[in-house]
């Protein structure tokens, strides 16, 4: 498959990175004598280095080299040059810009725009479904709140692939819903293989990531604050808009982040529920790596995705300067 021979400069960079980390640790120990506390952080830091920093460096390495290990910017050209050989390969794999609502540029750009749009829709829907759910769950008077929390947690114990496939058996042409429709003498409906089905799958999978941060923010809120608002003459609705909601914003921003990020990089769901008609950027990266066996272009696409996510996070952090939302990642 891919050659694991790295040029000397890449190996040098990695050694430098590890050495830098070691120095950092040493300096840390010396600086704050609280050795005990920082000791606990080391396994975690080591974990970060092995499973985050090194993979990131590897991705960067692949993105800026060609198959023979030479430095190149060629991999990024797939992004704007539709004549790039990779784009032709992707088209053969069934990535059709037209299917995504008109060709704007290369298959990559169209897929990315489509993914961002889907992620945006998913986040908005999750917010509008999740916020009221969290509100009920956090309500002191509402005795079913705790039950609701559990109902949201239980499906999360199931594997994400299983959950998605389960939707298939509901939505299929011969699935549960259509069987019921037929039994009632109604015409069957095409429920799968379109972007609505994909959106449904995404919302279903990511909703808890909205509900829990918001629930957390709401249930931590001192109930006396909303009592104080009512005491001062605010109706329950005004109390919500002026006190409860503003104070839950850090949770909302956290929720938006936690839903948006995995949404943009969604893969597999489009293939199962969308039938491969409308695949997303995550699928595209996966196929570039595995089907087209091109780690270099795949890494370049991943880097672009990462930069985009970082940019949107920075933007969110501007909205929430206290940074409670951004700090969850």
């Amino acid at each position: 498959m891919i050659s694991m021979r790295f040029p000397p400069w890449a190996i040098g960079a990695m050694i430098l990175g590890l050495a830098g980390f070691a120095v950092m640790v040493a300096a840390n120990v010396r600086q704050n004598r609280g050795v005990k506390r920082s000791l606990f952080a080391y396994p975690y830091s080591l974990w970060m280095v092995v499973f985050t920093i090194i993979p990131l460096l590897l991705i960067a390495y692949y993105a800026f080299t060609d198959r023979s290990g030479q430095f190149t910017l060629e991999n990024f050209r797939t992004f704007w040059d539709s004549n790039h050989e990779m784009n032709k390969q992707l088209a053969e794999l069934g990535f059709d810009p037209a299917a995504l609502g008109g060709a704007r540029g290369t298959v990559n750009v169209d897929t990315l725009v489509y993914s961002l749009w889907m992620a945006f829709l998913c986040t908005v829907i999750c917010l509008f479904l999740g916020y009221p759910a969290a509100l009920f769950m956090a309500d002191r008077q509402f005795r079913l709140g705790a039950t609701l929390v559990i109902l949201f947690i239980i499906p999360m114990w199931m594997n994400f692939l299983l959950r998605t496939i389960a939707w298939m058996s509901l939505l299929e042409d011969n699935g549960l819903i259509n069987s019921i429709l037929t039994a009632l003498g109604l015409p069957r409906m095409q429920l799968m293989y379109n972007s609505q089905a994909v959106l449904l799958g995404m919302v279903y999978n990511y909703l808890p990531f909205m509900v829990f941060p918001v629930y957390n923010a709401l249930s931590k809120q001192d109930y006396r604050l909303s009592e104080a608002a009512m005491d001062l003459g605010a109706s329950p609705i005004l109390t919500f808009w002026r006190v409860t909601m503003p104070l839950s914003l850090p949770g909302v921003i956290s929720g938006i982040t936690m839903v948006f990020m995995p949404s943009v990089t969604t893969f597999f769901i489009p293939r199962v529920l969308g039938g491969g008609n409308t695949e997303m950027f995550g699928d595209l990266i996966e196929r570039t790596f595995l089907s087209a066996d091109n780690w270099n272009v795949g890494s370049a696409l991943s880097l672009i995705m990462m930069v985009l996510i970082l940019m949107s996070l920075t933007l969110l952090r501007k909205v929430d300067p206290e940074g409670e939302g951004g700090s969850t990642i």
């Binding site: 006396r224 104080a228 608002a229 009512m230 003459g233």
Partner: peptide
């Protein structure tokens, strides 16, 4: 009668000032 319709105001035990 709900609290917001009473001509009574409260100084709460731990103040409950609005932090935002």
């Amino acid at each position: 009668l709900p609290p917001y319709k009473r001509r009574v105001n409260t100084v709460f035990q731990k103040y409950a000032l609005f932090p935002h």
